[in-house]
Write a protein that binds this DNA or RNA. Structure first.
Lengths: 194, 194
DNA sequence: CATGTCAATTGACACAGTGTCAAGTGAATC
DNA sequence: GATTCACTTGACACTGTGTCAATTGACATG
């Protein structure tokens, strides 16, 4: 039955997701996932060719469940680009902890695995799109600081909001998400808005 | 003879460094290093207990040869904190490509290896110290933007100047080092200085 | 000259984790 | 009753790290 097949697939995705979050993306083996999903290790390979394929599929699955795209789109409907920017930082800063483990694992895999790199870039795509919209909005409203071309500002803002930056501030510096949002907002407001 | 022992050690460190830079920190095996150093794979373990120990030792070796500390100290002698900040971004931005491969490898190892994490934190220490001095100088000169406490500004500046940020802008966004320096300077000047 | 020391070599092996393969099981389907 | 299909089981190949024991070759000292 295809519903049974689907159930196993979903069980694997859920197990992968849960384990990645529990262990912050580190030390999650295929055998751990199999155990958590209640199937044999080899059965995973009936659904996903490689570990990387599984992680990419899990990332897509999580995106669907969590719906970052939608959250960001709502943000974009703010009255002004400045409001959108503030809301954007807030949504993103609060979203990262929900996907931290999986993102971390995907990022690590990216170093050695081409396919993981592609999957990562796709995940980060909507963030970059959001930055582009906001910068273009700022510019249209005449509030983009004169130092910046739109293209440069987009890339700098996207980098400031990167997963790695979020991680360094919260994990290495011990900031709360609220502090991250407050101070990152301050930085980008000063840095890009006039 | 102890000079012979030292020679082999240095040969290993040089080989490690060179390979890390050549391969941008990825896919460098102990056997590759041995081959490049002209010794047997097992002989490496006569000098370095583990791969991580070797990488940490190489990082220290590179630091000695390249002398980031000294370069940064010269920067600190600038007339004003603002000048120091600009020079700091310039020195750091131009320094990273010289240590990219090794830094990348150490950063990757950090995820699974406690000792690598310590080694990384030590390497990043002088950067953080520099940020602290600059922010405290800005504050003393009354030019730190009012949004910031010194502690918060130090951590945010340190994060803005992180290896990962440098990497995202130059590798992922394709910026030249000159562009990195110019735009990062613009961001931190706007973000922190008043 | 004989002896000891010490760095390095060689070959073998343990271990972990990914991915593959072949044979077999059990339940639904025709 | 035969087929199909997801899944299980056990075995194995492969890679890379780290360990071990036996051996070599150079050099230093008595």
């Amino acid at each position: 039955m295809s519903s049974n097949e689907k159930n196993t697939r979903i069980k694997i995705l859920d197990a992968t997701w849960k384990l990645m979050e529990d262990r912050r993306g580190l030390g999650v083996r295929m055998s751990d996932i199999a155990k958590a999903a209640g199937i044999s290790r080899q059965a995973i390979y009936l659904h996903f060719d490689t570990r990387t394929v599984l992680m990419s599929a899990t990332a897509i699955y999580v995106d669907e469940v969590k719906g970052l795209d939608e959250r960001l789109k709502i943000v974009m409907s703010a009255a002004t680009a400045v409001d959108a920017l503030k809301a954007f930082v807030n949504v993103w800063g609060n979203y990262v902890p929900e996907i931290y483990g999986l993102a971390k694992a995907l990022l690590a895999a990216r170093e050695t695995d081409e396919a993981a790199g592609v999957a990562w870039d796709e995940r980060m795509g909507c963030l970059r799109d959001g930055c582009r919209e906001i910068i273009s909005g700022l510019d249209a409203e005449g509030r983009l600081a004169p130092e910046w071309t739109q293209a440069d500002a987009v890339e700098m803002l996207w980098t400031a909001l990167s997963f790695q930056t979020w991680e360094q501030l919260t994990v290495d510096c011990g900031w709360s998400v609220d502090n991250y949002v407050r101070h990152m907002t301050a930085l980008v407001m000063r840095g890009f808005v006039v």
